[in-house]
Amino acid sequence: MSGPVGIVLVSHSAAVARAVAELAQGLAGGGATAPVAPAGGTPDGGLGTSSELIVEAAKAADRGAGVALLVDLGSAVLTVKALLAEEDELPERSRLVDAPFVEGAVAALVTASAGGDLDAVVAAASEAYGYRKE
């Protein structure tokens, strides 16, 4: 048996990644949630994208059922794509999710915590694009 799908939140800002992880955990409701690991900014605390922090976070969130990576923009997107192309950098069954960062994180964590598999988590996060605000 493998555990829940892991969620990784990659942002240019450590504060954003951490806060969105907390927000998702808060909104996912009480009790046990699936692992969510922030990977924000650069190792020295600046703004940017760090492949090192992304790989660490993915390993931390991996419970054997796959890892869904949500990203903000620019180099965060490209770095995760480049790492996936490397094949041996990220855990097996790691996927880049095309989803809005905040809404997607909440949808992904709720779905993963409810026991959804990687496909279900990716679908739920991507569907967050469909919710119009106006």
Partner: peptide, 21 residues
């Protein structure tokens, strides 16, 4: 290429990294 992906910290890292790799 691998080194650029892991050390640049901006979009040029994965782009140049992918080019060289």
């Amino acid at each position: 290429g691998r080194q650029l992906i892991s050390t640049v910290g901006g979009a040029s890292g994965p782009l140049y990294g992918t080019l060289l790799r």
